[in-house]
Design a protein around this nucleic acid. Structure first.
Lengths: 335, 335
DNA sequence: CTGGCACATGTAAGCGCTTACAACAAGACC
DNA sequence: GGTCTTGTTGTAAGCGCTTACATGTGCCAG
């Protein structure tokens, strides 16, 4: 019972700056082997009640917390998921991440985040992240298909958000084309005839689909490229003005808001996402369930990690047209 | 050179569903020992150029990525930091996290996030998180002082954001009292005399300090408690109305915005934070450098983790009054 | 020719866990 | 009383890495 020959460092001595107790110290204190401690903690194999009690006491006294590193190595899993997104500055990704974290936490998994910030090293960072999680969510075009394929090839499940499928990886998107067409219809109902689409369809499949949806209804729409944020919309004002459009359909709310600021509301505008500021700016937009997007991703990922499902899923979440004042005066026509 | 007696599983055979290559396979392929592979990868000890080249080739061919678990165990560190916040729905924490991630990534550390969501198990979740990171940032009142102390006691550095110091842990806050007093002065300049402070000073030290700052100038101010989000402000409208205030000073922008929505702008209001929506709502507020808050936290943490600094820091970041229209008409008085 | 040294590399002991397998004690059964 | 269970616990082999130490080689001074 006294000091079983453990290969580990002498557990007594200066209690002071010890990082944290190990399973060996708990075992010694409880007078059992480390295997028994492990069994009590994980509840895998029944342990005599008295023994279990002693172990639990030792755990409490030592404030023992199992090392995730040790456990992970032995179990060959991380109990953690990752999520990669371009940025967190807009409300969009914040909401997605929030929904994701919320479900992942419920499922007992930690969440590692990685913002690519458009860094050129994004590929490496993602590969690195993939090596420390059991599954990964990749938002939009943060890395190229090749990288996604490489991660998937190592056996790490991947879920793509707002991005076209790669290999047989799961994807979740929100409905774009139909709502875009509906939005266009609405604008046509205002009597507008000359349109500009503001955004960057090449760098986002969401934008591309929205553009396509609109163009189905308004073939002559003029695309103008700009950045994804307020600043992008603001700077594009001059280019937009040159086209003298009756209305501008923006790829997202931030661009719409930025443009509105530049034009001081002189041009009818619509956005996409329905962020908080959109409500206060009276922006007509399309609401998409951002939080749900993240939550679903977490669940799909979990199904893959636990092996509950084999075939790839491609979910599409519904969106909703929200008419406010930014598209101009109009006989009320709510959706 | 052929199959050195390794205790590990036979590395050849079905390449198909292998999770990922190990250092043993790289070593075998390059015809060296695992020690040499490790040395090449980490660059710790010089290796003959030819050998190094062979190792690098093997690494590339096998798409080898070192296991963070193995490495972490051996090095006794996680190369990861955590951050705990109550929620990510408002822009405030999203910005903080963004700034934090940005710097942490630069420093080569992964970021684990944990949203407490007011869950009763928050304490355990934080303790658990602490066991898988090298350092931890705790925002606001997500967990009690006891928990912070316990984490700090295990030797894991902790940085507190927007929260009073605990033990000798680092803290970062933004300036509240003075700006609050300045804000109050400004409102007095409008000729207002009867004030309400809307927020929950008991659950946030930021709110408490803002309230104190205001009360220094307006001793008779009436505090009303409400939730931290738009909904909280919206619901408090009736209680506020009963007090017939000349102006309402809210603890943050979201509350102010919610209240404004309920009163339809009939009562002068101020917020705090300067979130995106505040600009569009014309909200008079106090801007605080949210992203910088996170960035500084990441740096302070790093200093502690690397042991570059011993004494605790208590940083206070400056804030800035932003006057817009929500506080009512007034001879222009910018700050 | 030999001892010594620098350099390159291999050997093996951990890091903190999980778990297959072995060992052992106490009944149960014939 | 002997054998077989059943229940409980210990032993030890990994999991994939890092690194102190040992080993081996080539070269130079003596």
């Amino acid at each position: 019972m006294e000091s079983p020959p453990s290969p580990h460092r002498d557990p007594d001595g200066g209690e002071a700056r010890r990082r944290t107790a190990t399973i060996y110290e708990v075992a010694e204190r409880a007078g059992v082997s480390i295997a028994t401690v492990s069994r009590v903690l994980r509840g895998t194999i029944p342990v005599a009640p008295g023994t279990a009690e002693r172990v639990r006491e030792a755990v409490a006294e030592l404030r023992y917390r199992p090392s995730h590193l040790g456990r992970g190595l032995a179990e060959r899993q991380h109990a953690a998921n990752g999520i990669v997104f371009p940025d967190l500055s807009g409300p969009y990704y914040a909401e997605v991440v929030l929904g994701y974290e919320s479900v992942a936490a419920e499922l007992g998994r930690s969440v590692l985040i990685l913002s690519s910030h458009g860094r050129p090293t994004a590929r490496d960072m993602v590969l690195d992240l993939a090596a420390r999680v059991d599954g990964l969510v990749v938002c939009t075009r943060t890395v190229d298909d090749e990288t996604v394929r490489e991660v998937a090839a190592t056996g790490t499940p991947v879920v793509l958000i707002a991005r076209p499928p790669v290999a047989d990886v799961d994807t979740i998107t929100t409905e774009n084309r139909d709502s875009a067409a509906r939005l266009a219809d609405h604008l046509l109902g205002h009597g507008y005839r000359r349109f500009v689409f503001l955004g960057d369809a090449d760098r986002s499949s969401d934008f591309a689909e929205r553009f396509e949806g609109v163009r189905q209804v308004i073939p002559a729409i003029i695309p103008i490229t700009c950045g994804f944020d307020e600043d992008g919309g603001f700077r594009a004002a001059e280019a937009v003005r040159l086209q003298k459009p009756d209305a501008v359909i923006c790829g997202n709310d931030e661009v719409a808001l930025g443009l509105t600021r530049a034009t001081r509301g002189s041009v009818p505008v619509t956005g996409w996402d329905d962020v908080m500021a959109a409500r206060y700016a009276g922006l007509t937009t399309v609401r998409q369930p951002m939080r749900e997007l993240g939550a679903r991703a977490a669940r799909l990922l979990d199904e893959r990690i636990t092996g509950a499902r084999g075939e790839p899923h491609h979910d599409i979440l519904p969106t909703q047209l929200v008419v406010r004042s930014s598209c101009g005066p109009h006989p009320k026509e709510e959706t």
